[in-house]
Every structure is written in structure tokens, then in C-alpha cells.
């Protein structure tokens, strides 16, 4: 276990020692801050209008629906862009520099390597996403009180989506020694899983149902509204496990070829 932790910390430290990471964080926080501010302002405008015109009856106008759901959806789109950049390094760099061979000569198993690297990516993901919780704290000063439970489920969903992206990105990174190629491919695959549900309403109902089940957005949507469905959790866990297993296989493959 201490070996896994060592790899995890090395992965996190690697990014903390990189200037571009701070640039990415700044960019991410600036953009998400803007999203938050704009959706909150818009919400206050709408709620003020409805309050002053009693004739209009609005249903379901609350902070969770109006601000949190929108904000989290925007955050995932941003992660779709950023995570391939964060994951492209994990195996590609070690492959290119030859340190992977070094790693293979140490008394550690491939499972430990994959686990350590994945946990490292999760750590980076936390560093990126968790500061955005501050916005909700700041919002209290303008009397915007969010439901804590829906906030928690929303962020749990967000981290699950992020972890899914990371697992897939890591898998692609284990396939190539060219970081840019890895980032491009993982972005393409992520985009595919993102948009696959869009056509669900047009195709035949059976196919539509399958496509919808494969879509990352569909499974995330409920969570942004504070709903936890085991079906969604299972989907994400399976998605992550599948790509972790696939990564493990790419490392093991050199033992199969004879």
C-alpha cells in the first residue's frame, strides 16, 4: 500500500511542479467563477421578476434547479476539455523517457502501478474541482443558501464523472508514448460518450434506450438535481473499472507476447 501511495504522491507532485498546472487551475477557476456568478445573477433576476409580478406562477424555481444544476453541467463540459490534458502525461511520459522500464524492474505489481497513477489523477481532480465549493460559501453573503445535501450529491456526481474521464484518459495514455496524440484520442472518445445520448430520441426506442444508458450526461443529470440512483452509481463504477482493467491489460500485454 505504501508503494501505491508513493506513486500517487509522485503523480500529484509532478503536476504541482509544473507551471502549466497553475495556469490550468487559474483558467478553470476563472471560468467556473464566471459561470457561477452569471447563473446566480440570472436566477436572482428571474426570481425578482416573478416576485414582483404575482400573476405569473412559476413552478420549481429554486437554487438547486436554477443554479446548481446548470453550474455543474457547465463544469463537466470544462472537465471534458481539461481532463485529457491532465491524463495525457500519466503513462506516455514514462514510456517516452524509459522510466516505465525502471518501474517494471522494481518489486511492484502492475496493479499497484495502475492504482497509484489513478489515485494520483483523482488527487489532481480534487485539487481542481474542490476549490469551486468556495463559491457556494461566498453565495451565502448574498443570501443564497444552497441545500447541503443536493450540493453533496452534485459534487459526488461531478467527481464520479471526472474519475470516469480520468480512467479513460489514463487508458489512452498507456497506449501511446506521444502525449498530444493521447490527449486528442481521449478527448475524441470522451466526446463520443458525451454526445451518444443526443440522438436517443430520434432512433428506434430500443436503440435509443441503449444509447442513453451509455451516455455520461444522462447518468450525471439526476445527480445534479440531488438524486442518487444506484443505477447511475453502478454505471460510473463500471465505466471506471473497465478502463482501469484495460489499462492494466496494456501493461500486462508484454507478458503475453512470446
Amino acid at each position: 500500500m505504501s508503494k501505491v501511495i508513493a506513486i500517487t504522491f509522485r503523480e500529484i507532485r509532478l503536476w504541482l511542479h509544473t507551471f502549466s498546472f497553475y495556469f490550468l487551475i487559474a483558467f478553470f477557476l476563472a471560468l467556473t467563477g464566471y459561470f457561477f456568478w452569471s447563473s446566480l445573477s440570472y436566477f436572482s433576476l428571474v426570481s425578482f421578476q416573478t416576485a414582483t409580478t404575482p400573476a405569473v406562477e412559476v413552478k420549481g424555481l429554486n437554487l438547486t434547479e436554477g443554479v446548481l444544476g446548470l453550474f455543474l453541467a457547465n463544469l463537466t463540459v470544462l472537465m471534458l476539455l481539461l481532463l485529457p490534458i491532465l491524463t495525457m502525461r500519466s503513462f506516455s511520459e514514462e514510456k517516452k523517457s524509459g522510466t516505465l522500464e525502471l518501474l517494471f524492474s522494481y518489486p511492484i505489481s502492475n496493479i499497484q502501478i495502475v492504482a497509484g497513477k489513478f489515485l494520483g489523477l483523482l488527487g489532481i481532480l480534487f485539487l481542481l474541482v474542490l476549490p469551486t465549493l468556495l463559491y457556494f460559501f461566498l453565495a451565502r453573503f448574498v443570501q443564497a443558501h444552497f441545500e447541503v445535501t443536493s450540493l453533496l450529491t452534485g459534487y459526488m456526481g461531478l467527481l464520479l464523472v471526472g474519475a470516469s474521464f480520468a480512467a479513460l484518459g489514463m487508458f489512452v495514455s498507456a497506449l501511446t508514448e506521444h502525449q498530444a496524440v493521447g490527449a486528442g484520442i481521449s478527448f475524441a472518445i470522451l466526446l463520443f460518450f458525451w454526445v451518444i445520448g443526443w440522438v436517443a430520441d430520434w432512433v428506434s426506442p430500443e436503440l435509443g434506450r441503449i444509447l442513453r444508458e451509455f451516455s455520461l450526461v444522462e447518468h450525471f443529470r439526476d445527480m445534479t438535481h440531488g438524486v442518487i440512483d444506484t443505477k447511475d452509481i453502478v454505471f460510473f463504477v463500471l465505466f471506471i473499472s473497465f478502463f482501469l482493467f484495460a489499462t492494466l491489460c496494456t501493461l500486462e500485454i508484454r507478458n503475453w507476447k512470446r
Binding site: R10, R13, L14, H17, S97, G98, T99, E101, L102, S105, Y106, P107, I108, S109
Partner: peptide
Amino acid sequence: PELRKKLGYLAEHNPLYRDV
């Protein structure tokens, strides 16, 4: 993998983590 504890390896071209 524990068997590799008995083994120290300097690979060709000496790969290192160059950033630390």
C-alpha cells in the same frame, strides 16, 4: 514481483525522473 527485490537494474540510456 517481490523476487525483483534481489535485483538492481540500470537500464540502457539510464532513464531517470528528470524533473525532481
